[in-house]
Write a protein that binds this DNA or RNA. Structure first.
Lengths: 345, 345
DNA sequence: CTGTTAGCGCTTTCAG
DNA sequence: CTGAAAGCGCTAACAG
């Protein structure tokens, strides 16, 4: 804990102890085959002199940054902050640090963030795609240099890139099946950009559930927008004007679902009596809106852990075949009042 | 855009162009006094060969990381993601990148994050304090080496550290005054850890508003907890049991306020008829709960920009006296139904 | 168990 | 305007 502003190097320690810098270097990283006693002395003086290792020098030497990059659309959800916490846990334990950035849902930012990470020589990248990303050429830089890239949640199917997400198809299927069990016969689905797996798969699950229950699907029942509050309200208005009026809405996220509920109630109709509503994600908001929202829950922390582990494993065994090409995590249907057309059993 | 996995260095470019590495280095960073033509050629071949500058080498040489660290309690709010976006904007424009980490409200994590940043030689640090941080010795490492540290939102008063936040006292004062204008006479305040300025100042504003309006304050009216959902519900229950029953609750954040509203309604009372409720932060949730929540709005993006600018300025003019010691940003009272005891004018 | 040595890739005097 | 050379701090052979 020196007071001085001068940076201490291993040479300073070496000099003070009358040993070589190499030994200090070894002692500092617990190299097997360094005398216990000298090791102890090295650590002690290092501490005493206020030494901190210079990661630039060691990274330069090792050609390795010990940094993992993370690119997400936005950080503003509980889900995402859980994911990050999960990633952080695994990654820190393995001696890496994180370099986080948000694309703010724009491919343009995603590309420039990816470049910044590339130039900062991250050892691996975790990505959840922006809303409008149409291709993933900006990640080829990494694969060309054997830097692992793993997609999570908002993923893309591509032989080169492992991914991790829930089974959005199945989750949506079970949710819509539940609505149908409740007696809903004309179910609208409000979704986001169909280029994103999370939305496309939920749409497929929705359609299949209708089909399997002999419910007709027509184009009017599928509304695709950007899932903002304004779009949600507009969509709800549209639904209210449809003839015959739908008796349920399945929104692709909770924020949209919640705003639909508010709009429906504003129009003087009952949820779920007139129109049942369900969402996706189990956001905090789901329990704030009244009636509470039926939704799909899945664990961000867990997803973060798994995704990070994929990267770390790859880094630990670079030669090894990347056999875990995709991972599907579990999700769970959470039934709350907003969908219960008949009284719960 | 070379296909190869081999890293290109300035020497490779130099060799190909039959010039020296020094010139390449200069050309690459637009050094004044390099022939326009050679500069052009350098850039062209660099690009063609797939060169990327090695930041380790240049950081090692320059003793500068071009990284700004950010430590926040959690990333899971709109507010925080806005702050980060604001910081990112300013910081990227100045050629820096961000190193973000969350303390998850624990001082223990804050300390280890600070150490990690110190060891990674960040050029500056932006901090919003954890819930339970009792001292800030873990930032002394930075100040000792003249690395600027700026606190935002959850700040601490300390001569060494500039800070940026809103006037929590005034905001709370105006909010409580509004409740009083609505006819509320017995107002409970639910707050968080009083060691954090944001909570302590709001409490002071609340108490002063009572005083200035000749309303009595007694200890029972101030409830301090951790502002989780469970605590909010417990607090609401306590309020409902008080005799005489309070006619308003001012919660130190929206999440707590929202959960109080839900609990009050569950008990069969009306908001604001029986009990008016107000929160703080203008979270998305404020417009989801019914009735919509009266609250205080302040702009995270702006706060992020200002805080980042403080750091960048300091970095640009290291000698210059840091005259902007504290900055107070504006905030705004947002009146919604949850507090309107008498009809709006 | 420890020391010597040679770079990792870049920047920056200093000299032309 | 350009080049030669030294060194930022660390690590990994290699040799004892």
């Amino acid at each position: 804990m020196a007071e001085t502003g001068k940076e201490i190097t291993i040479y300073d320690i070496a000099q003070k102890l009358n040993i070589s810098a190499a030994t200090v270097s070894r002692g500092l990283k617990d190299h097997p085959g360094v005398n216990k006693n000298t090791k102890r002395k090295i650590l002690a003086t290092a501490n005493e002199m206020g030494y901190r290792s210079n990661s630039f020098a060691s990274n330069l030497r090792n050609r390795k940054s010990n940094i993992i990059g993370v690119i997400v659309p936005r950080l503003n959800s509980n889900f995402m902050s859980d994911v990050i916490a999960g990633i952080e846990k695994v990654v820190n334990k393995a001696g890496y640090t994180l370099f986080i950035s948000q694309s703010l849902e724009l491919m343009q930012n995603e590309v420039s963030n990816a470049k910044a990470m590339f130039n900062n020589r991250v050892d691996g990248v975790l990505v959840s795609l922006a809303y409008d990303t149409t291709n993933i050429e900006h990640f080829e830089f990494f694969t060309k240099r054997d830097i692992p890239v793993v997609f999570f949640d908002r993923v893309i199917e591509h032989a080169k890139y492992p991914s991790i997400c829930i089974d959005n198809y199945k989750a949506a299927y079970s949710l819509v099946s539940h609505l149908i069990e409740q007696g809903c016969k004309r179910i609208v689905h409000i979704s986001g950009d169909q280029r994103r797996n999370v939305y496309a798969d939920r749409t497929r699950g929705y359609q299949q559930a209708l089909k399997d229950n002999q419910l007709p699907f027509d184009k009017e029942l599928l509304i695709v927008n950007d899932l903002t509050k304004e779009s949600a309200i507009a969509a709800a208005k549209k639904v209210l004007g449809m003839k015959p009026r739908p008796d349920a809405i399945f929104a692709a996220n909770d924020y949209c679902a919640v705003n639909c509920i508010l709009e429906i109630k504003k129009a003087g109709l009952k949820v779920p009596g007139d129109i049942a509503v369900a969402g996706f994600n189990n956001d905090q908001m789901a329990c704030v809106v009244e009636p509470h929202l039926t939704t799909i829950d899945y664990k961000g922390f867990e997803m973060g852990e798994f995704a990070a582990r994929m990267i770390i494993n790859h880094l630990a065994n670079p030669g090894e075949l990347q056999n875990t090409h995709s991972l599907i995590l579990r999700s769970e249907l959470i039934i709350r009042e907003s969908s219960l057309k008949k009284p719960a059993i």
